[in-house]
């Protein structure tokens, strides 16, 4: 069973519906005691990094997520949820993240390219992962103005080119993230959600 972590940031309607279409069992909660029952977690998120971290801390969820990740439960951060997995962000001043992966969240450099990075971009797969099998050169839907500068290149499982190399799928051990919205990324995105769900299911057996 997947637990979708609800901390008041962003729209989880679409991701819920995508899981329902794939018949993946899930529940939504913002309470540690309830979430604890899950076999794996989705950390969604749209909005500002600082607000998101404040909300997570206020609900006691920041430490909870770190503990659960350390205990080996699969975790998938989506969009802002992926950025929160890293050490810190420069969005609206410096804010500390969850620190589960090494790196910083920076503003996409303005220049010839428009910010936000909005639209369909092609995935370049760097490190083989069960999440990305057969997805080389597939497209995903991105909407974001900040990107992750990962410290450990091996955690960047796939990237997309947008002036800078934008990490698109990250992961180490049982902690994963997608910068794009898998639930809005047609076949490729749904495949990633499905594979993550299967990983959660395997862990529960």
């Amino acid at each position: 069973m997947i637990g979708i972590i609800d901390y008041g940031m962003g729209n989880i309607f679409s991701v819920r519906k995508a899981l329902e279409r794939m018949e993946v069992p899930y529940f939504v909660s913002g309470l540690r005691d309830e979430l604890k029952e899950a076999d794996g977690y989705l950390l969604p998120g749209v909005g500002a990094f600082r607000d998101a971290m404040q909300n997570l801390h206020a609900a006691g969820l920041a430490d909870f997520i770190k503990d659960e990740a350390a205990a080996g439960k699969p975790l998938l951060g989506i969009c802002l949820g992926m950025q929160l997995l890293f050490d810190e962000s420069e969005e609206n001043g410096r804010t500390k993240g969850l620190g589960l992966l090494k790196g910083k969240v920076l503003r996409i450099p303005e220049g010839k390219l428009k910010v936000p990075h909005m639209g369909w971009n092609q995935l370049q797969v760097h490190n083989g992962s069960f999440l990305l099998e057969d997805l080389e050169k597939q497209y995903a839907y991105f909407v974001h103005s900040y990107y992750v500068k990962a410290e450990e290149q091996e955690t960047v499982l796939a990237s997309a080119g947008y002036g800078v190399d934008v990490p698109a799928v990250v992961g180490r051990g049982n902690v994963f993230g997608t910068q794009f919205h898998p639930e809005k990324s047609s076949a490729a995105g749904l495949a990633i959600l499905k594979r993550f769900s299967e990983k959660v299911k395997e862990g529960s057996e």
């Binding site: 679409s14 519906k17 279409r21 839907y141 919205h181 809005k184 990324s185 047609s186 076949a187």
Partner: peptide, 11 residues
Amino acid sequence: VEQTAAELAIP
């Protein structure tokens, strides 16, 4: 909108 969002995997 609700029904569409439930069925559609594009924005």
